[in-house]
Design a protein around this nucleic acid. Structure first.
Length: 479
DNA sequence: GCGATTTAGCGTCAGGTTTA
DNA sequence: TAAACCTGACGCTAAATCGC
């Protein structure tokens, strides 16, 4: 049986888009074949989207930066930014589909699929998905490695949407990736129309997860129990999914899977054993806070107001930071003072942060204006040069017109003089009975023949220097 | 290498402004 | 109107830089 397959191990220069398209085509071909088992092996770009290590994060940052540069070069990115934001919101409602599609594309691994025709014009594909069995919280260790395969049911409909049912987790977890979302983001990825705004949100999420990855296991545990941080991870999931979809519609499954593993690798507060784990984590957080100076500890609490909220002291701090005015009525003066100092520390930090951003903005504005000023100065110099050249041409034209008028005046005077001399000469010859009736010199300077030629020559050639010399010579000879 | 200087960040105070 | 907020000013500390 000839199987549709894809293997880019020998194509190091294949781009991500080409790789995605090739894998897409291979999967479609596998589905169309009906009963084939296709092999997909990717070696290059798709793996860059796995967030399972610091290196992978850096790769994703690099890829995102490339998209940012491409977006900055295209004004249409603004429209795509709005569209992608909406799609990002829609993705929040479809993340289960991507989550359950984990492992469809995995680096250095083969994907074996057996497809079957379905009476309802759908094709079911059994997929062996490599997954993560380890609960190790070491962020540097690969998450997808040496894992026991799990079985999932994948249904690919005629509209190319993917429905995945992970039989190892929840049977009702099947969800559908909207074809419109898939198509729109894929289209945006093909044209590299990702805006700087969208890029910024991705970068912010990546920075957060980067910080999480840098934490040690104890801090990681406390971090994951913070509701705010849980929300952060959710936001990361949505935007990172959008980013991944924009770059590689198929690799998003692996990305989301790894992100889930990142969350699941830490104790989950909503499980039955979460109470004990929560207490241990709170103790760890309190230990961390207690190990640092008082002022710094207060600052740390201010930075993460929800950390360690089981203790009474932290409740007070929470109230202190939450702006509850009624809580200060029962306080002593010293407590009020401590509360005020704490709040002022936080306010001062925010103020400095705001001021720094303002200064940076001013610097950017200054640099931009300087550049624009230099450009305008250059443009001004060019325009002044053009104006000067134009003025010079006007002066030259005036001078030429004046010179032509003078020449015409001289010529008129010369013709009149020659005419009078010829008339006198003819009169003398008539009285002295001269044999030759025609004087050659007079005939050569006849005004009927020479005057029009000279004037026309001056006017047509627009060469006043040459014309003036000719006219002056002729006039002199005539005189 | 070492002391002097610069820079960045922080905590605190004070005073004006905003809010409930 | 008290509490909260915002921000300039001051002093302190640690790290970076510079000059010898």
């Amino acid at each position: 049986m000839t199987l549709p397959s894809y293997d880019d191990s020998n194509l190091p220069t294949t781009t991500m888009a080409e790789e995605v398209n090739a894998v897409n085509a291979a999967i479609v071909a596998a589905v169309a074949a009906g009963d084939s088992t296709a092999s997909f092996t990717t070696q290059h770009h798709l793996d860059a989207l796995r967030i399972d290590s610091l290196e992978a994060i850096e790769n994703l940052v690099s890829a995102s930066a490339r998209l940012k540069r491409a977006a900055e070069d295209d004004e249409e990115a603004i429209e795509d930014s709005v569209k992608l934001r909406k799609l990002q919101e829609d993705l929040n409602n479809n993340t289960n589909a991507a989550a359950q599609a984990s492992g469809i594309i995995s680096n250095n691994s083969s994907l074996n699929a057996s497809a079957h025709n379905s009476p309802s014009h759908t094709t079911s594909v059994e997929v062996q998905i490599p997954t993560v069995a380890s609960e190790d919280t070491n962020m540097d260790a690969p998450l997808v490695e040496e894992a026991a395969p799990i079985t999932a049911e994948t249904t690919i409909t005629e509209s190319t949407s993917v429905v995945v049912k992970d039989t190892t987790t929840t049977a009702d977890a099947a969800a559908r990736v909207s074809p419109a979302i898939h198509e729109a983001i894929t289209s945006a990825a093909k044209t590299n129309h990702l805006s700087a705004t969208f890029h910024s949100s991705i970068m912010a999420d990546l920075e957060r997860i980067h910080q999480v990855a840098k934490m040690d296991p104890a801090q990681m545990a406390s971090f994951s129990t913070n509701p705010n941080n849980q929300a952060t991870l959710e936001q990361l999931t949505s935007s990172a999914l959008a980013s991944a979809l924009a770059q590689s519609p198929l690799a998003v499954s692996t990305l989301h899977s790894n992100l889930q593993q990142l969350q699941h690798s830490t104790p989950q507060p909503e499980t039955t054993t979460a109470t004990t784990t929560q207490q241990q984590q709170d103790a760890a957080v309190q230990g961390i806070i207690a190990s640092i100076p008082v002022t710094t500890a207060a600052s740390a609490v201010a930075a993460e107001p929800d950390a360690g909220n089981d203790s009474a002291s932290s409740q007070d701090e929470d109230e202190t930071l939450s702006g509850k005015r009624t809580s200060s009525r029962n306080m002593t003066n010293d407590e009020r003072r401590q509360r005020r100092l704490l709040r002022n520390r936080v306010a001062a930090k925010e103020c400095r942060k705001k001021k720094k951003a303002y200064v940076n903005e001013l610097q950017d504005t200054c640099a931009r204006l300087q550049e624009e000023n230099a450009r305008l100065l250059r443009e001004n110099e060019e325009l002044n040069a053009k104006i000067t050249l134009g003025a010079m041409r006007i002066d030259e034209n005036v001078r030429l017109i004046k010179e032509v008028e003078e020449l015409n005046a001289k010529l008129t005077l010369g013709v009149m003089t020659v005419g009078a001399a010829a008339h006198a000469h003819a009169h003398v010859h008539e009285h002295e009975h001269v044999q030759d009736p025609v004087d050659v010199s007079v005939a050569e300077v006849s005004p009927k023949e020479d005057q029009p030629d000279v004037v026309v020559a001056v006017e047509e050639t627009q060469q006043p220097q040459v014309g003036a010399q000719e006219v002056e010579g002729i006039a002199t000879e005539a005189v």
